[in-house]
Computed example of a mutant assay.
Amino acid sequence: MDQILQQLINALSLGSIYALIALGYTMVYGIIQLINFAHGDVYMVGAYVGYACMAHLNLDFFVSLLIAMAACTVLGVVIERLAYKPLRNSTRIAVLITAIGVSLLLEYTMMYFVGAQSRAYPPLPEFMSRTFRLGEVSITSLQILIIAISVLLMVGLQFIVQRTRLGKAMRAVSQDRDAAQLMGISVDNTISFTFALGSALAGAAGVLVGIYYNSVNPLMGILPGLKAFVAAVLGGIGLIPGALLGGYVIGATETLVASVGFSMLRDAVVFALLILVLIVKPSGLLGKNAREKV
């Protein structure tokens, strides 16, 4: 029982990070049906901004987290305005190739300026490094912090989407873009806001991963970005609750596979799980099959 609780805590920590990244994928897809493969690299930029604030500017963790989120918000809007907006009426394959190009641009631009080597975050304050024990179960204050910040950001996102004017505009554009425009909603501004929101969450995830694994590098966004995309598809692409569920399922799967001694196979198991779910339920765990009338 203690072992199960221990792995559950580990799964919650990892799943929370995947869920934050997956939310950006699913919101953008829900609005403009775009798979933004540059999203994982926005998360990487957030990790580096947090590292620079803590290591070079000597700012504390919470200030660094806010600055990283703000920087990624601006980056997300710039990417949308410069790379995706001109292709709004282009084919999906053109936009998809552009997204891959933006991803590579971010990776190698960062590599040019900071080098390819990994960097370690500075030591955390003592209160963030404590370990609490409940019998045989141990939980660090860092894990508690990651789970708490992730849940707080997810609750804030849900509030924005469900209760604010911009959130209602997002839901309207996702349902019918033309009808929303006829009702006076600025589609372009709504799409930019969606990118800003998703990028802010990715920036927060980058800083959380940086302090959790104590390592950042220019290519760190590739695999977590793919796994977060898997999480979004697994839960039901375009659905916010689906992204949350998918993130925690992926986190739990990785933790379970590693706990039984097959840590080298955890990535393969994650993608095998995606294939299995798509065979059984192509719309994802929470998705609904929509029939297209002809």
Rank of each mutant, 00 (worst) to 15 (best):
L223R: 06
A204Q: 01
V260F: 11
S64W: 03
E254H: 01
A172N: 10
L226N: 07
I211Q: 06
L278E: 12
H56M: 14
P86A: 06
P86Y: 04
K281W: 09
A180C: 06
N58C: 09
P122C: 04
I67A: 00
A99K: 00
G284W: 01
P241W: 10
V45S: 09
A231Y: 02
F62R: 01
I32T: 12
L23E: 10
V114H: 02
L124M: 13
M69I: 05
I4E: 11
F195R: 01
V102S: 00
V249P: 01
R163G: 11
G236Y: 07
T26D: 05
R119N: 11
Y121N: 00
V257Q: 06
N289R: 14
R266P: 02
F193L: 11
Y48A: 02
E107F: 03
F271T: 07
R171L: 15
L201C: 03
A148S: 14
I144A: 13
V137R: 07
K293N: 11
L5E: 06
Q175R: 13
L134Q: 07
V269T: 05
F113S: 01
Y18C: 05
L201G: 00
V277H: 06
M183W: 03
L208T: 04
A204D: 03
R88H: 12
Q175G: 11
A169P: 06
I211Y: 08
